[in-house]
């Protein structure tokens, strides 16, 4: 680990002022990803600005919406009564992630900006276009059994490891940010940049912008939501596929549906094609399957991850069927 200076931020403005202009500076939240990457030599900041003392650790009602501070720990958010009552998909996604210890430390904001767990990215002795632009992507011909099947490029096939972000994508969440220009807000699905030829550029926002919170709009009346994660180990493992879904069925017809897919792309994948196929149609397994297949038409699986295509299809069907069948 490189030597670094450490500062505690006294305010959001002060924190942003320290980091925004300094490409060698990083915000320190729960540390569960950043400190790990520093131990690995993947992140080598010269300055850490500790934001954990900032007053961004509340869950508050904002009209009909719920506003989650960026420093709310994963375990607190999962256990929050309003979250459990209104957004079961969110609580389930959080509890499906990591371990009790990690959830106690990890923050809401940090979770969204965590880096891929691709084994080549986390190993500083290997090439990786995300870590070292232009060095190549060994995953495409190498270990990729758990990497992307959607939206990947010839430059990078990494996946985003978050469970939380998949649920937030399905909830139409918005991300609160602050940069040198001041506070602003962006839909979570627009927060992530498609891979293209610059996998090192992961976010659409300015370097040094600080995530200050997440806003959750109310779900439509009658909505049911669920998160289901598939992993090789029964717990304490990243997903090989996950689905977050919100579904409203009226008189047997789908009146609202939102589907987030995890572990399939460089960012939480909102399944718009499937959603469009389902809206207004019957809430039947056949329709769910046809919609999932339509979404996966664009899949570009690699040598060792083609199993994910039928897995994601069947998972989408199972989750939607479960929601449609709930009473």
């Amino acid at each position: 680990m490189r030597e670094f200076a450490y500062a505690r931020a006294r305010s959001v403005d002060a924190a942003v002022a320290l980091v925004a202009d300094n490409p060698e500076a990083r915000y320190l939240g729960g540390g569960t990803n950043l400190v790990d990457l520093m131990e690995l030599g993947v992140e080598r900041p010269e300055l850490l600005v500790d934001v954990t003392g900032l007053p961004l650790d509340d869950v508050t009602e904002d009209g009909a919406a719920l506003r989650v501070g960026a420093l709310v720990r994963n375990s607190d958010l999962a256990a929050h009564p309003l979250v459990r009552e209104r957004y079961p998909v969110l609580s389930q996604a959080l509890l499906a992630g990591a371990s009790g210890q990690l959830r106690n430390a990890a923050t809401t904001g940090g979770n969204l900006v965590q880096r891929t767990r691709c084994v080549y990215f986390t190993d500083a002795t290997k090439p990786c276009n995300k870590r070292m632009p232009g060095s190549g992507c060994p995953a495409i011909e190498g270990e990729h059994h758990n990497l992307a099947i959607l939206g990947a490029s010839d430059h990078c096939v990494a996946t985003h490891p978050s469970d939380l972000a998949v649920a937030l994508a399905a909830l139409d969440a918005r991300v609160d940010l602050q940069d040198l220009a001041g506070p602003h807000e962006i839909p979570l699905v627009d927060f992530y940049r498609p891979v293209g030829d610059r996998p090192d550029l992961e976010l659409t926002v300015q370097d040094g912008a600080l995530v200050t919170g997440v806003a959750l709009p109310p779900l439509p009346a009658g909505a049911r939501s669920a998160y289901r994660k598939v992993r090789e180990r029964a717990s304490y493992a990243f997903a090989i596929a996950s689905v977050a879904a919100v579904l409203v069925v009226e008189d047997g017809l789908v009146s609202d549906v939102r589907i987030g897919l995890g572990a399939v792309a460089s960012h939480p994948w909102r399944a718009r094609v499937a959603e469009r196929a389902l809206l207004g149609g019957p809430a039947t397994e056949a329709a769910f399957e046809a919609a999932a297949e339509a979404e996966l038409d664009s899949a570009t699986p690699l040598r060792d991850n083609a199993y994910k295509v039928p897995l994601v299809r069947d998972l989408v069907v199972a989750v939607l069927a479960g929601l449609a069948g709930e009473r």
Binding site: R117, Y120, R233, A234
Partner: peptide
Amino acid sequence: RFGDWVNHNLADYHVATNA
């Protein structure tokens, strides 16, 4: 290509947990 087991950590090499 590297002669390396690339999943050389306990997050990528899974051993059984309590669950």
